[in-house]
Design a protein around this nucleic acid. Sequence first.
DNA 1: CGAGACTTTGACCGTAGTCAATTTATGTGG
DNA 2: CCACATAAATTGACTACGGTCAAAGTCTCG
Lengths: 227, 227
Amino acid sequence: MLKAVGVMSRDVKSAVAGAPNQQQANVGRAQDFWRTVQRIPAGAEVAADPESRRRQIVVVSGWIAETRILPDGRRQIFDFLLAGDVASVCDSHMGGRSFIALTNVEIADAAALTSCEGSERASASIAAAIHRREQRLFDHIVRIGRLTAKERVLNLLFELYDRLEAIGLVKDNAFKLPITQEVFADALGLSVVHISRTLKELRGEGMLTIGRGLIALHQRRKFAAVA
Amino acid sequence: MLKAVGVMSRDVKSAVAGAPNQQQANVGRAQDFWRTVQRIPAGAEVAADPESRRRQIVVVSGWIAETRILPDGRRQIFDFLLAGDVASVCDSHMGGRSFIALTNVEIADAAALTSCEGSERASASIAAAIHRREQRLFDHIVRIGRLTAKERVLNLLFELYDRLEAIGLVKDNAFKLPITQEVFADALGLSVVHISRTLKELRGEGMLTIGRGLIALHQRRKFAAVA
DNA sequence: CGAGACTTTGACCGTAGTCAATTTATGTGG
DNA sequence: CCACATAAATTGACTACGGTCAAAGTCTCG
């Protein structure tokens, strides 16, 4: 549990902990929230339980991919959910979408957050998270619709960089990237082979360094043009 | 005004008119709604008025494109808004998005709808419209991320077909398509030239017929595979 | 009828896809 | 700790889908 907290987004932490001056009163409620945390193994689908129909979840730790698989096997990834992100798993399969855990994942009930004290703060955080996700969707459309392969890779990497940095998961310009190149390809509408080549090229240009599961980004400057 | 009504979506009509048994009581409120209607000329941007900051609009007639333009001139269209669709023009420019009228357009205030009698019905309609738009966004991502040019064109045309049919704007398998091929290209992440060629090919295969601003789609069957 | 916008066509190019083989991790059990 | 099995990444050769450029052809609409 402590490990999980270390990995949580500012939003989740502050919303659960409450403002400093009201912390004591919230302990009970916060525990209610923590009791809703559940673990999902890498590769599994994040489904809405049969009981709680429409369900808004908060990611506590790990990576989740929001995807659709076409009848012929082609796959498209819409978005990556990181710690602190919120999603409506309710109608997931309804719209031909599913949430796949890319790593071991911990999720919790967004509803449980709202019922804590400081519910206005929590609701606001949740609304903000949902709003950010919508913005990401637009960015993603531009990415796959109008950027070249190199731009797409860089653009997505920098998005992830910014998001991970915001939740304290970036160290020395580097972060852990627990996804295969195939996942990357399915997010960016490219082939695995071309992802590999593109990364090689970017490595050659000194834009990034890859090693031991970590990826480091350099020269944010040049990137400004792509953002 | 009557002409406008003839073109409205079922949602807008029913929400404004109210259930048959309570129609009389609604006349006053409905007029409030109609008073919020405003006309936007083709090519103009649909902006949130300075007064009403965050603004949810309902499209009454015409076509609107939700777009983003990159610094270097590349353009991506996220979605087309037709009669009955709802959008939050509030943070439009905030997220690098803008709403462009592709034809002369009539829009109204969604808020005014809600304040009419039958507000639960209205709210539900609005929520449904917003939900459908989100689904379209996902479809669009799959389209530009994983479909070939021919598939993209067909898929988008059939989406438009279905939506226009739902609001009574399809006659004899044909509908009015008031957009240039360049707009089509910017929506599908292709070049104008390739759109032209693709349409030619589809015409050759008997999938569609174009003439006098109308486009007719045939053989929905074959399309099932792409849907 | 003429001007400007839109569409179509041809020739050519380049980005990204495909297929297949090889190399490099990543584990896993002995 | 090594050997082996499997997944992931890389590379090469070739293909093809879609982009670009430029010119010609059509529409529209004052």
